[in-house]
Simulated scan of single mutants.
Amino acid sequence: MEPDQFKKILTRYADGLANEEEKQLIAAWYDSYDQENEAAVFSDSLEEELIRKEMQQAILNHRNPPEIRKFSFRQYYKYAAVLAIAIAAVFLGKPFLKKPVKPNSEQDFRVIETYAGEYKKVTLEDLTVIQMNPGTRLRIPLQFAKLKDRTVYMDQGLAFFEVAKDPHHPFVVHSGQIKTLVLGTKFALSTEKATLTEVSVSEGKVRVSNGTQVLDDLIPGKKLRYNSKNEQWKVSNFAIREHNVWFQKVINLNHASFNELAKIIAINYGVKIRSGNKHTATYVYNLQIRSTRSLTETLKIICSVHQNKYRRTGNEIVIY
């Protein structure tokens, strides 16, 4: 029998597919080894030995197949999910990997500022008009028109608001600790970085709160002054005609101290005023500061109140 033919018989025998004649042939071949007699199926002993070893190995492989390590996808699901998110982020503009934007960061606002001697009139998208005095800083949300509440932030300065009526979208001004809520009205707001905030109303009604409680509901002719240092406030009367100065660019000083006068001059003219003696520092002033006047004209008026003189050195003015 040809070796190739006998190999095929061995393969069928190992796979359990051999017929009776082939099974008998294989059995006779095994018996020949047990009885140490040569089988007549091979003419060459070396060839027979080679076939015998191949057959044994084939049978062993069939009976004891090598262990196939099973691969489980379950333990990799979590890694696959993370990878899927990362890939999606790359192709979809990285929405999962972007850092959250702070709601109150500068990039969310349009910042409007006025400097020494500068006045500005700002009209918002809802047609609300804001008259800004020198030294005022406002922040208007870029999404102002889409917000449920029309919100504005006033960091410092002095401004007059003519709020367009819209009962469904209240108008809110945040200034330090103070929150001013209106539906449609005219009011003035002044705030200093240090402690003081003042709200005065000439038309309509506004609600003033400090974040923890409602301080008062102001009506025309009423003003509220709040000190954030001690959280105390006071409501008093004022003449509504005082608000007319916003359209004339006029600041009224009523019993203003020398320090208050100095602040107004610094805001309007960008110069520093200081007292040249102990008496000047105690003076109070009742006068109007008009932006249409030159600094020299204004200084002459200031000095005329208490018969003072002044001298100027660079950006500093001394009243004595």
Rank of each mutant, 00 (worst) to 15 (best):
V111H: 09
P95E: 03
V101R: 07
K99V: 14
T185H: 01
V129H: 06
K121S: 14
N104Q: 12
S175M: 01
L158C: 15
L158K: 15
V182D: 11
S175Q: 00
R110V: 15
Q131V: 09
L138R: 00
D166E: 12
K148D: 14
K78M: 13
H174T: 10
V111P: 00
K165A: 13
M132W: 02
Y79I: 06
L124N: 04
K99T: 13
V90K: 07
P103W: 10
K98R: 14
A89Y: 05
K146Q: 15
E162F: 09
A88I: 12
F160Q: 08
A88E: 00
K120W: 05
L83A: 13
L181R: 14
E106M: 12
F160L: 10
F91P: 03
T128L: 09
L147D: 10
P100M: 08
L124M: 04
V182Y: 02
G93E: 09
A159N: 03
L83Q: 02
L158N: 15
V163M: 08
K102M: 14
G176N: 05
L142Y: 07
T180R: 04
D166W: 00
E106T: 12
L147P: 02
V182A: 15
K179I: 15
G93F: 05
K98D: 12
V101N: 09
A88R: 00
L181A: 11
E125Y: 05
P134W: 00
F171P: 06
V101D: 10
L97V: 03
Q143V: 10
H168E: 15
K78W: 13
M132R: 02
E118N: 07
L181W: 13
H174N: 13
L97W: 05
E118W: 04
N104P: 03
D126Q: 05
V101S: 11
G93T: 08
T180G: 05
E113R: 07
Q177V: 11
P95A: 02
L92I: 03
T123L: 11
F96C: 01
F96S: 01
P103V: 14
V90Y: 13
K148Q: 15
F144A: 03
F96K: 00
R137H: 10
E113G: 00
K94G: 10
R150T: 07
F144M: 03
R150Y: 06
F187W: 01
L138T: 05
D155W: 06
H174C: 06
I87D: 03
S105G: 12
P95T: 01
H174G: 06
E162C: 09
F109E: 04
L92R: 06
H174R: 10
Q177I: 11
I85T: 09
V111W: 09
A116N: 10
T185F: 02
Y119G: 00
K186W: 02
